Computed example of a mutant assay.
Amino acid sequence: MPAPSTRTAPTTTTAQTAQTAQTPPTPPTPPSDTADDAAPRSLRKRAAILVAAEQVFLAKGYLGTSMDEVAARSGVSKQTVYAHFGSKETLFVALVSAMTTTAGDEVHPSDPAAAAATDDPGPYLREYAERQMAVVLTPRILALRRLVIGEVARFPDLARALYDSGPARAIESLAATVRSFADRGLLNVPDATEAATMFNWLVMGGPLNEVMLLGDAVRLNRAEQRRHAAECVRVFLAAYPPE
């Protein structure tokens, strides 16, 4: 009887093993774009453009800003920048609107009257004043304010938008809070808007004027902001004591 044949397994050389270990796996094929994917991607590009625009506009001013640099910093093409914002002016307006709206949202509660649902106005007003100074006196917001003031002749409507999103919104929000306190007899306030205007200027008048004219070096630190807020609240409550 013939002996059964024996098959020898193929031999793998050391070089072949090393080559196999070094060969990276084939990356998966990315999924094809869908309408659902395209929308978030477009929003991400828009957000990246606004971030880059903030860096360039605040550093170089309106005239010194080029759309080429914004595109380079945002990592998109110049054509993409123009697809989202048709001109440098449009981009500038969108940037100012976005920055002021975001800053305002950080300061003001969505429902001022509900947020002030407390029987002691003092702590609420101190926290509000500290929050307002912390946001408005940040270097980037100060730089934006200086930039818009410098371009007021070129963009008068933009200055109005900054005012409406800044001081006017602060006074309107604070007036609703003051009115809520007055309705419960916690403050004696004949005119809530006038009282809110007084408080807003107590808090922001001195610190903002100093830093706008003398530079960021004189900006109040957090401890100074807390002391200033406490003194503003003391004066305000003395002017409008409970009934």
Rank of each mutant, 00 (worst) to 15 (best):
V203Y: 02
L208S: 07
D120T: 10
P139G: 04
K45R: 13
T177L: 05
E89Y: 07
A229M: 07
A116E: 01
L142S: 05
F181P: 05
A239L: 10
V70F: 09
Y62H: 12
V218Q: 04
V148G: 01
V136A: 04
V211H: 05
R219Y: 07
A195Q: 00
L237F: 07
V81R: 00
A48F: 05
G61S: 13
T34P: 01
H228G: 00
V135F: 07
L158V: 06
R227M: 09
G122C: 00
G122V: 03
A71S: 14
P25N: 08
Q19G: 03
A117F: 01
L220R: 04
P139M: 03
Y82P: 00
R184V: 00
A3D: 15
P242H: 09
N221T: 13
R227T: 10
R131C: 02
L186M: 13
Y124A: 07
Q79Y: 14
P121K: 05
R146S: 05
V93Y: 08
S74T: 12
Q55K: 09
F57I: 03
S77R: 11
D111N: 14
A161K: 08
T118R: 12
R131T: 06
T90I: 09
D119N: 13
E224Q: 15
G166D: 00
V136W: 03
A143S: 11
A117E: 12
N209C: 13
P10D: 02
M99T: 00
K45G: 09
